[in-house]
């Protein structure tokens, strides 16, 4: 938190108009974390609406108020100084409450019945580094106020699509 009290952290940002929806981020993410290629094991997930040419990656947004942390019955989730989620594997019972409750659908259940989520690759996110269109960046910013629904509305308005 900075002096003004705003939740300024280095976070992943997305320019929805630049995302081509290629999902290379999903592949590099699952490969670097799990050694395998699988969207189900990726901490970033691209949602797509082909009809409107819309693509948008979903990931942990480092919200100041984090329902998964707050609602974990075993207090297994906490935040690193950089803001990323951390899991106490011992404490986690694998109940999935966090996966259910995250308003951004940023957590998934991994194969060991423990939640998986963006860990910012220890400060050098590979999805940003390898994004073919520069749609992702990692920079200091306040909490995002635009999610996929708002982004889609904004782009459709800009392009003149009336659906």
């Amino acid at each position: 938190m900075d002096e003004s009290g705003a939740n300024r952290l280095r976070r992943l940002l997305v320019k929805a108009e630049s995302c081509a929806g290629c999902r290379f981020c999903e592949m590099i993410c699952s490969f670097s974390h799990e050694g395998r290629f699988s969207p189900s094991l990726s901490r970033i997930t691209v949602i797509k609406e082909d009809r409107y040419g819309f693509d948008y990656p979903i990931f942990c947004r480092l919200c100041e108020s984090c329902p998964p942390v707050d609602s974990c019955p075993n207090k297994a989730l906490s935040r690193s100084p950089e803001g990323a989620l951390r899991l106490d594997e011992e404490a986690c019972s694998g109940c999935g409450t966090c996966v259910e409750i995250c308003p951004h659908s940023a957590l998934k259940m991994g194969e060991a019945s423990k939640p998986i989520f963006c860990d910012l690759c220890g400060g050098r996110p590979l999805c940003v580094e390898r994004c073919p269109t520069g749609a992702l960046s990692y920079e200091e910013a306040e909490e995002l106020d635009e999610g996929p629904i708002e982004a889609m509305k904004r782009l459709m308005e800009r392009w003149g699509i009336h659906a």
């Binding site: 081509a20 290629c22 290379f24 040419g53 800009r158 392009w159 003149g160």
Partner: peptide, 18 residues
């Protein structure tokens, strides 16, 4: 109006037009 790409493409060449 926008670039789109096939799966895992690092040179996405598809275009969304209006």
């Amino acid at each position: 109006v926008k670039t789109r790409g096939c799966f895992a493409c690092t040179i996405p060449c598809s275009r969304f037009y209006m």
